[in-house]
Structures are given as structure tokens and as C-alpha cells.
């Protein structure tokens, strides 16, 4: 199953009340679970490109994940993490606190990278996967637009 089909499948499932969906055949197994936790998509098919998380825009187009494409496509270097809202970008939890992350730092999945604030609605942006910070695209306390790049990271 390629990414496009998988997308269609996820869309179909999320438009229903189904909270868990599993599909298994000879060479692949797909499991979609939703509801309580943030949506998790498990997609097992070695070798395969990682399914992209929604808050990460790819810097390069995704490699097709066809079963026939022999060697595993290496995870793309330099993925963008973009802002989900219009707001003010903060690198630290408080003005006198140390920044959440620095360039070169390796961060774990779920680790907070920054805060984007809009009208006292605070949005902590977390790493969706283990990665290394390649570039911090914004200065502290600067406005950011929706979809604007906040970090460039290298998935590990």
C-alpha cells in the first residue's frame, strides 16, 4: 500500500466512529488507532518510509513506499517543524529560563521544543519523533505565521 492509499484509508476511518482498525495480509500490516490518545498510526512493512506526522512538513517530497522499492529509503535530512497557529514564538518557558532546545541538541519524541502563544492560548510544540535540531528558524518572542518553519530537524 502506498502513502496515498494509506492517506485515503486513514481519512475513511477517521470519518467514521471506528476507533481501531487493523488490516493484515501476506506482506503488510496496518493498524490505525484513535480516540483517547492523539492519533497513532502504526504501519509495519519493512522496509518502509516513516509515516509523516501531521505537524511536520517535509522539506523534500516523500519517497514512495512501495513494497517493490528494495533498499529502505533513508529518512530525509532536514525536515521542517512548522507552526500550527499564528502567534508569538518563545524558545523558553519563561523570560529568564534556559531555552527548551539549542542547535545540535538531540531531542526525544514528546520533548517540548518551544511555545507558540496566541491571545493567551499557549501551544507547546513537541517533537513527534527523536531528532537532532539542525536550525532554529525564528528569534525568541517574534511573531510566526501559520505553517511557518520553526525548526529544521534531522530525524534519528
Amino acid at each position: 500500500m502506498d502513502i496515498k492509499d494509506l492517506k485515503v484509508l486513514v481519512k475513511m476511518v477517521t470519518e467514521t466512529d471506528i476507533t481501531e482498525f487493523e488490516l493484515e495480509n501476506a506482506d503488510e500490516k496496518i493498524r490505525i488507532k484513535r480516540g483517547t490518545a492523539p492519533e497513532v498510526i502504526h504501519y509495519q512493512q519493512p522496509p518502509v518510509a516513516p509515516v509523516q506526522f501531521p505537524s511536520v512538513q517535509q522539506a523534500a517530497p516523500a519517497a514512495p513506499a512501495e513494497a517493490s522499492s528494495a533498499p529502505a529509503p533513508v529518512a530525509e535530512k532536514g525536515q521542517k517543524i512548522v507552526s500550527p497557529i499564528v502567534g508569538t514564538f518563545y524558545r523558553a518557558p519563561a523570560p529568564d529560563a534556559a531555552p527548551y532546545v539549542e542547535v545540535g541538541q538531540v531531542v526525544e519524541k514528546g520533548q517540548v521544543l518551544c511555545i507558540v502563544e496566541a491571545m493567551k492560548l499557549m501551544n507547546e510544540i513537541e517533537a513527534e519523533f527523536r531528532c537532532k535540531i539542525v536550525k532554529i528558524c525564528k528569534e525568541n518572542a517574534q511573531p510566526v505565521e501559520f505553517g511557518e518553519c520553526l525548526f529544521i530537524v534531522e530525524p534519528l
Binding site: P38, Q57, P84, M119, K120, L121, M122, N123, G147
Partner: peptide, 27 residues
């Protein structure tokens, strides 16, 4: 603006909201 409440210039209430979201969807 945006969400302090004052009575005669003195602050009575403070509101602070937090969000968990993906690019297109509010969790």
C-alpha cells in the same frame, strides 16, 4: 485584552489556556 478581569482597575481573575494540536486539528 485578551482575558484579564478587573474591577476598578484591580485584577480579580486570571485565565490561561493551553492547547494540544496538530497542523489541521485541535486535539
Amino acid at each position: 485584552w485578551p482575558n484579564d478581569i478587573l474591577i476598578d482597575g484591580r485584577k480579580i481573575a486570571g485565565l490561561l489556556n493551553e492547547m494540544s494540536a496538530e497542523t489541521e486539528k485541535v486535539n
